[in-house]
């Protein structure tokens, strides 16, 4: 059933696949970081116009996945298509054209430290458009207003809190009105209030401008509360896929452990090790 819907290629493992042509289509992705195999044949579809969550334990390569989608890293094998274009077959100029349609929110915000908040948000506009300065000012102020931080436009990023820096970075990511935004762990290390602000901002921005959002996170409840679709990846494979409700109701033992945060289960509390007694009694 799923194969009929997506048209070409095999569909991801999930039961219900989002309808319509996906914006991002990943097939047979393999990627190794040094000796460690991060992805071993991952298939993933990101539908247009929704919020898709990609969740998994720390160290499963969720950030790497975003870097692969945006063409900053090259897979060992497999293809990643964004809007029908194979990201890793594009030349530099074409890749940059594609990236102008993507925004990315980095974990740290990644604001340019020697520019003010205003100049940071204005940076992509000044780089890629020939708009007059008055127009840029209006656009920047509107973007900053959307994230509620018009008041700090003259400050340097170093004076902002982590949550505010992330919101400024979000304003910068949407400055060029992209089609898609990639969020790298947007909730990590946030106090409950700024977490709540970010959660609603992501949903609100997505719906207000008809974006496609990919949220990579291991904060299960916050992420699922705003996601339309969700993937859970671990051990280099897709463990579960489907709508947020379907994933939440998953019966897979492993997924249950991850979602409910149980200390022991299919993923063990102990790292693989020889028998404790033998280790203790053996010669040092």
């Amino acid at each position: 059933m799923a194969e009929g819907l997506t048209g070409r290629g095999a569909s991801p493992v999930g039961a219900s696949v989002p309808p319509g042509e996906p914006l991002v289509r990943i097939r047979g992705l393999r990627f190794a970081h040094g000796e460690r195999l991060l992805f071993d044949g991952v298939d993933l579809d990101i539908p247009r116009g929704g919020v898709t969550a990609v969740m998994g334990p720390s160290g499963t390569g969720k950030t790497t996945l975003l870097k692969l989608i945006s063409g900053q890293l090259r897979p060992a094998s497999g293809t990643i298509e964004v809007d029908g274009q194979d990201v890793h077959r594009l030349g530099r100029a074409a890749l940059y054209r594609l990236r102008m349609r993507m925004g990315m929110l980095f974990q740290s915000g990644a604001l340019l430290t020697d520019l003010s908040v205003f100049d940071n948000v204005a940076y992509p506009l000044r780089e890629h458009t020939r708009l007059p300065e008055a127009m840029i000012r209006k656009l920047v102020l509107m973007k900053l207003e959307a994230v509620g931080l018009r008041g700090v436009q003259a400050q340097l990023p170093a004076t902002l809190s982590g949550g505010m820096a992330r919101r400024v970075a979000l304003a910068r990511a949407v400055a060029l009105d992209p089609d898609m935004i990639l969020y790298d762990e947007p909730f990590t290390g946030q106090d409950p209030i700024s977490m709540g602000v970010l959660v609603s901002l992501i949903r609100h921005l997505n719906d207000a401008s008809g974006l496609t959002s990919i949220v990579v996170s291991h904060d299960v409840s916050e992420t699922l509360s705003i996601a339309d679709y969700a993937y859970i990846i671990a051990d280099g494979r897709v463990m579960e896929a489907g709508t947020a409700a379907e994933v939440r109701a998953s019966r897979s033992e492993w997924v249950r452990q991850f979602l409910d945060g149980l200390p022991d289960g299919p993923a063990h509390f102990h790292a693989p090790a020889p028998d404790l007694m033998r280790d203790l009694l053996g010669e040092a």
């Binding site: 900053q72 993507m102 970075a169």
Partner: peptide, 14 residues
């Protein structure tokens, strides 16, 4: 280290 270079890459700036 603070991903500023990556952020520039993502803004299609070399």
């Amino acid at each position: 280290a603070t991903e500023q270079l990556s952020a520039l890459e993502m803004m299609a700036v070399d």
